[in-house]
Design a protein around this nucleic acid. Structure first.
Length: 587
RNA sequence: GCCCUCGUAGCUCAAUGGACAGAGCACCGGACUUCUAAUCCGAUGGUUGUGGGUUCGAAUCCCACCGAGGGCGCCA
């Protein structure tokens, strides 16, 4: 946000270096990390160390000398209120009156675009969620859905054109088992509500029946054979019931405010996948071991001439000639670039257990001569486990269903809403409860590093206090509430001729950082940066709220604070929007 | 056997290689006649798993070890 000032100082520093015979190096800016001190800082340790060359010297002392000399040189620059050299750092404090006015005005002018980067005209694809049809949707599936959605939102905010892709697993052994159980015991039945739960129950029942009587496996094989020869009854049943699952997913995605631009289905890629395998064989990349009872494989390490085992061996076709997941993934990767040849990146938000798999797929495609394979990237994330490191698995029965979590979280939120907003219409109360409940579910999945395991437990998931979405939403609501009292009439920019207090400075400081944090989050693909930023903003606002009266303040303080509240509301709203968390109107 | 990830306060987690390692929860003590107390203020809490190394500077990079989890030719 302060590029112009930074640039100006950078030039001065570089000129100073030249004049003093110091090596020129890049200037990196940070925020001054002390509370209530708003400005930018840079250190000179690297420069000081470089200046010694081969000889040794006191780096800290030298860095401080350089910082002091530069501080002297900059003293007449006029952009800053205070310039100081401390401990090897050069601290440039903003003149709060001018800079505050500038920040607030910019936020209010740009509105819900504040923080967003300008359009880059670069297209990306983010594939995420990929649920299995004919199965339940549980809490373990949420991480990919939330992470993918928010990464897409962040990249959009950073200026990219993003294609949101979903890749449902709509065929496979699990679907065949489901169809068998349905055709044999539930024929003609239809789910009315809670579709996904019902679909999951039919599957769980199938698994149970097969466990109890393994002889039934023959019937499964028969259904599989009928599916293979496109038996009309099986195919029609599959088409109809698959749609039920997709309808159920759509309901959940709508509830969670997650959308997709493009659906790829697992079932679409069997044949194209086999085509790629033929191609790999023709090019001598894959080896056919079926003669000797083996499968079709790619010995990637050998092809690359690697001595160490890194990519290992990938099976691309079963010994019976049928496709497996890897076969289909080869074709899917290609299809994405056929549909969108200009993709700069093709991201896959899939759990960490598939890291090797994706390395194999991408490397094999690269070996096959597809240069776009290098634009494919797996974004791994760790699992959501139950306490005691228990993995959620439908067949083990160790799952928490998404429907149950949402219902529980919403119900708990509704209790509080009803107590605190008695006058509100029930419809509105419910809407708020949904925003709070779902926000509370999303936040903890986004606010930790994705390579860390999330342990799900009810108590934590339903804790609305502290660093959590409701805290941030509440700050938004409080800001909103003040502005409602002035009918949302925001005074025009005015002269700031009084000393800003600590909480005001901290709040403005944090508001001004949003654009940079968004860029950082996009660069590192880390929603965590935004959850932290949103929380810090909310905390600063809550602090401001208790310490700085707005409506009863004297002018010009009153007008300035109303503008600041409006800017804070906007900044909080924009960070929540980037996180896919709804900002409610009341709480 | 090989490969990947993690180890920070009692618990859950933060911290572009840089200033004093910060939050929340829990616990203890305060603050609602004042814009919504789903809030705020204060107190307590640390040899960043261990040992080396690189660097002016390491929770962060490298090596070894210990501990936890995951992956490794026909599951998805």
């Amino acid at each position: 946000m302060f590029e112009a000032e930074q640039k100006k100082v950078e030039l001065q520093i570089q000129e100073f270096c030249k004049a003093s015979g110091l090596p020129v190096c890049e200037v990196k800016w940070t925020w001054i990390p002390f509370n209530g001190q708003w400005g930018i800082a840079t250190s000179f340790f690297q420069l000081a160390a470089n200046s010694f060359g081969q000889t040794r010297g006191n780096v800290a002392q030298r860095a401080n000398e350089i910082a002091s000399a530069i501080a002297d040189r900059l003293s007449d620059i006029g952009d800053f209120e205070k310039i100081e050299a401390v401990n090897g750092y050069l601290n440039l404090y903003f003149s709060t009156a001018d800079y505050s006015r500038r920040v607030i005005t910019q936020v209010l002018t740009e509105g819900d675009r504040y923080g967003h980067g300008s359009r880059l005209n670069q297209r990306l694809m983010v594939e995420f969620s990929h649920p299995n049809t004919h199965k339940a949707f549980h809490v373990g599936h949420l991480r990919s859905a939330f992470l993918g959605d928010v990464i897409a939102r962040i990249l959009e905010a950073a200026g990219y054109d993003v294609i949101r892709a979903n890749y449902p697993g709509d065929i496979g052994l699990h679907v065949i088992k489901w169809l068998w159980n349905y055709l044999k015991y539930h024929k003609g039945e239809k789910p009315d509500k809670d579709i996904t739960r019902w679909m999951g129950a039919i599957y769980a029942e199938a698994v149970k029946r097969l466990e109890q009587d393994p002889a039934l496996e023959d019937e499964i094989r028969e259904i599989y054979a009928r599916w293979d020869r496109r038996d009309l009854e099986v195919v029609q049943c599959w088409e109809e019931t698959r749609q039920w699952s997709l309808d159920g997913f759509k309901e959940m995605y709508d509830l969670l405010d997650i959308r997709f631009d493009r659906y790829y289905f697992n079932s679409m890629f069997e044949e194209p996948g086999k085509g790629i395998v033929d191609e790999l064989l023709a090019k001598g990349i894959a080896e056919d071991e079926r003669e000797s009872g083996g499968a079709v494989i790619v010995k990637i390490d050998k092809k690359l001439g690697l001595k160490d085992e890194k990519f290992r061996v990938m099976v691309v076709l079963r010994s019976d000639g049928t496709a497996l997941y890897a076969t289909e993934d080869l074709a899917l990767a290609r299809q994405k670039f056929l549909d969108y040849p200009d993709l700069v990146k093709s991201y896959y938000v899939v759990d960490v257990r598939q890291s090797l798999h994706f390395q194999q797929v991408f490397k094999t495609l690269e070996l096959a001569g597809y240069d776009w394979a290098q634009r494919c990237q797996h974004i791994p994330y760790e699992l959501v486990n139950l306490p005691g490191n228990v993995v959620m698995a439908s067949r083990e029965g160790t799952v928490v269903l998404l429907e149950d979590l949402i219902r529980e979280a919403t119900a708990r939120a509704l209790d509080v809403v009803k107590e605190k907003n008695r006058d509100l219409a029930e419809e509105n109360q419910l809407e708020i409860a949904k925003a709070v409940g779902i926000g509370a579910i999303k936040y903890p999945m986004l606010s930790r590093e994705s390579n860390k395991v999330v342990t799900f437990d009810w108590e934590t998931a339903l804790d609305f206090n502290g660093q959590a979405a409701p805290y941030i939403q509440y700050a938004y609501v409080r800001a909103n509430s003040i502005l409602r009292k002035v009918d949302n009439v925001i005074p025009p920019e005015n002269e700031l001729d009084y000393e800003l207090t600590g909480p005001e400075i901290t709040l403005i400081d944090l508001i001004s950082r949003l654009p940079e944090e968004l860029q950082k989050a996009a660069r590192d693909l880390k929603p965590l940066i935004i959850t932290n930023q949103a929380y810090e903003l909310a905390r600063a606002f809550n602090d401001f709220y208790t310490q700085c009266p707005v409506l009863i303040a004297e002018e010009p303080q009153r007008s300035t604070r109303i503008r600041l509240v409006a800017a804070a509301r906007q900044a909080i709203a924009n960070s929540l929007a980037t996180l896919g968390i709804t900002a409610p109107q009341a709480m």
